[in-house]
């Protein structure tokens, strides 16, 4: 992976009337990485991305996308970029292959149509009219259209909103397949699992400001939460030894014991030593570290004080 910057943002500001949608954002996205911009609705994700895509003018700050100022909407930049917007339509009376061929025609080095159809899994639908596609198929076509120019940089704005869990998994596989090719992806999402699964690095944005930036693991580590140890004990198991502290010392009706601890090593050691000594099987033992979700909820204040009302 090269360390060249695909996107550089510093001091970015954008207001809609009196509402500051983006309030001093600094970010760098390296070439070849998947970067997720994570945040609640109205946090400024879409505004930021639409400035990078050249749809909106910034009020202040410096922005470079593949070395260009996107506000100038230079053709040489647009030729290297693929955009999947949150919702956008397509000429209804053409079929899938015709649509892809139409958009391919806009680019100097288009990706072959059959390759795109295979990637987005719409080979069987190549001759189908757009009107007859399901919602998920149309979303895949959106991605296919964004791939027509074989872009170096791909913007995905909430690509899986409205998907069922299965469709979301498929979409993730597709994005991973694309990034294997050294492409840069900037993705916005309000799904933690999506960011954790796809992103090399991510930033959390809240009320127009970046409140955390790093790898998913780095950000998760910022959560002050405790480690959760969960185990199912047989009914015959006696009382826990006194050195096992932590919340929830007693198993519930199903024999499930949940411990929350700041000292997982010691707690776990005491638990397993006790189980060995008494020949107790520790079924379904699991240890969960603080998740990205915990960090996210802490950093965004669980949405409590996030300014609402901005279509961002």
């Amino acid at each position: 992976m090269t360390m060249r910057a695909a996107i550089e943002i510093s001091g970015l500001r954008k207001a809609y009337g009196p509402v500051l949608a983006v309030d001093g954002v600094d970010l760098g996205v390296r070439e070849g990485e998947v970067f997720a911009l994570l945040g609640p609705n109205g946090a400024g994700k879409t505004t930021t991305v639409e400035i990078l895509e050249g749809y909106r003018h910034r009020d202040a700050g410096e922005v470079r996308v593949l070395g260009h100022d996107p506000a100038r909407r230079e053709r040489s930049l647009l030729e290297q970029v693929g955009i999947v917007l949150q919702s956008n339509g397509v000429e209804r009376y053409l079929n899938v292959r015709e649509i892809l061929d139409l958009y391919r025609g806009y680019y100097p080095k288009p990706r072959p149509t059959d390759e795109i159809l295979r990637l987005i899994g719409l080979e069987e639908k190549a001759g189908a009219k757009i009107r007859t596609l399901s919602g998920g198929q149309r979303r895949r076509l959106d991605l296919g259209i964004a791939l027509c120019g074989d872009p170096r940089l791909l913007f995905l704005d909430e690509p899986t909103t409205g998907f069922d869990p299965n469709a979301r998994r498929h979409a993730w596989e597709l994005v991973r397949a694309l990034t294997g090719e050294g492409r840069t992806v900037l993705l916005t999402t309000h799904f933690m699992d999506e960011a954790a699964d796809l992103a090399d690095r991510l930033a959390i944005i809240k009320a127009g400001r970046i409140v955390a930036e790093g790898t998913p693991a780095q950000i998760a580590a910022r959560a002050s939460g405790t480690t959760r140890i969960r185990v199912r004990l047989p009914p015959s198991a006696g009382d826990l030894p006194a050195e096992i502290t932590g919340v929830g010392r007693r198993p519930d009706r199903d024999g499930v014991l949940q411990l929350e601890t700041h000292d997982p090593t010691r707690t776990l050691h005491a638990l397993t030593a006790w189980a060995l000594a008494h020949d107790i099987a520790l079924d379904e033992l699991s240890v969960t570290r603080p998740s990205l979700e915990d960090a996210y909820l802490e950093l965004t204040g669980a949405g409590a004080d996030v300014s609402a009302g901005v279509a961002a």
Binding site: N88, G89, Y106
Partner: peptide, 17 residues
């Protein structure tokens, strides 16, 4: 209707003048 459906916005994100 092309504007409402987002077709115009999509096209504007491509190099098509």
């Amino acid at each position: 209707s092309a504007r409402d459906e987002g077709i115009l916005k999509r096209v504007r994100g491509t190099p098509l003048p």
